[in-house]
Design a protein around this nucleic acid. Structure first.
Lengths: 224, 224
DNA sequence: ATATTTTTTTAGATTTGTCTAAAATTGATT
DNA sequence: AATCAATTTTAGACAAATCTAAAAAAATAT
């Protein structure tokens, strides 16, 4: 059995692994778990004994198959609960992360199964993140970062790569909601910042930092 | 803030208080928390420092107003989640207790509020227990124990006073479901055991122990 | 009213997950 | 290659919640 805390470590290591190909550093984990490096070292040793991660001191860490399975289950639960909160209980997408952080640790295979069915087997959570199926398989997400899109090419806003309440509320303020059509009016060569046009709203200016965190799909491949 | 564990103690003290008028003993709490008396003593001291209970050593314990409020919130959440699991996710009433024991500790006023609304502000959980409203008020439950009912008086099965999976599965086996009509055919003076007739089924024999844990209402006050 | 039994509390230890401060290792710089 | 800086680990401590065994108090019985 894996504890609440162990599950959080595994989830965080999984997320960090998705970004880099090499081992994850102790400090990187410490930052996301909001703990100190010394605590992480202790936990990594423990997870290693349980065969959930490959860890050698000073060499960083990566998940074993077994650890990845646990992480994917937690992520699956997190994202399903987010769908529940938004679709069924009427929460805004920027309010659900913290609650889902608690719900994701409830243990019952039947609960997850029934919830999935109740929600209509959703493939993506309210932020556009893919939901692993019960075998841990992720649906193909054909989304791109807005920062990779050409000028004047119309795209649909499909998700975000960052979930902080701050960021999501900023998007709401400038009128960037899921499903809205947008296109790039101008790219500033100097700092890669963008002027974009949001359908049914005025133009607005966003930094490269923000653009990198926006997931969109082209209008052409609209059916899904 | 109250921890998961503290909330469990408060909930259990609340339930024991509903049955007796006097102070609750350390041993009684230990039995329901599945811990040893020594652990209970420690926790009672801690809860007392937090002003959640009145406790003097060797004198037993009772909840303060503040402690009662916390307990009622936990019970409210537990029962609302049980309704969700049965009504929305299709669980049987004998499968939901353990899952609700975990869900009841999720902390978010908005979550509880929205869940309540989503479920249509239910007054009773799937076992027939009353659900406290958001101010901690219990709906009037006009149910009686089957053990108080007269021979031949037709009543409707409305709930149970005990939730162990064992007990609920036993009821299912003998055909005692929520909402079914029953009446007492015969009372055995010797041990107060009963022969009852279940509508659409054969007669069956139940012990006084079982009868005490069955909640029923008279047919006459049938509307609501 | 004294002795015995039961209940409750204390004392000291354990587990989980965390911390700080110091030591060890790695890696970067000259 | 030697030094310095950054990262990581060790050592020892702490808080929460639990335990066992022994002591203290209360309840019961003789």
């Amino acid at each position: 059995m894996t504890s609440f805390t162990e599950e959080n470590y595994l989830k965080i290591i999984y997320k960090l692994s998705a970004e880099t190909d090499s081992e994850i550093s102790t400090n990187a984990v410490a930052e996301l778990t909001q703990t100190k490096a010394a605590s992480v070292t202790d936990m990594l040793r423990k997870l290693s004994e349980k065969q959930l991660v490959i860890y050698q001191k000073y060499q960083g860490v990566r998940l074993t198959k077994k650890g990845e399975t646990v992480a994917l289950k937690v992520i699956r639960k997190h994202r399903l609960w987010e769908v529940f909160l938004v679709d069924k209980l009427g929460f805004n997408w920027d309010e659900v992360h913290e609650i889902a952080e608690e719900l994701e640790h409830i243990n019952s295979d039947k609960l997850v199964q029934q919830l999935d069915e109740f929600l209509g087997f959703p493939q993506f959570d309210p932020h556009g993140d893919p939901i692993p199926d019960k075998h841990g398989r992720m649906p193909e997400s054909a989304y791109k970062n807005l920062s990779e899109i050409l000028i004047n090419q119309e795209v649909v806003m499909m998700g975000v790569a960052q979930h902080s309440t701050n960021f999501l509320q900023y998007l709401a303020k400038i009128g960037l909601h899921l499903g809205v059509n947008i296109y790039i009016v101008e790219i500033n060569d100097f700092d890669k910042s963008l002027t974009i046009k949001i359908e049914g709203s005025t133009q607005c200016f966003i930094s490269y930092e923000v653009a990198k965190n926006l997931l969109v799909k082209s209008i052409s491949m609209d059916e899904d």
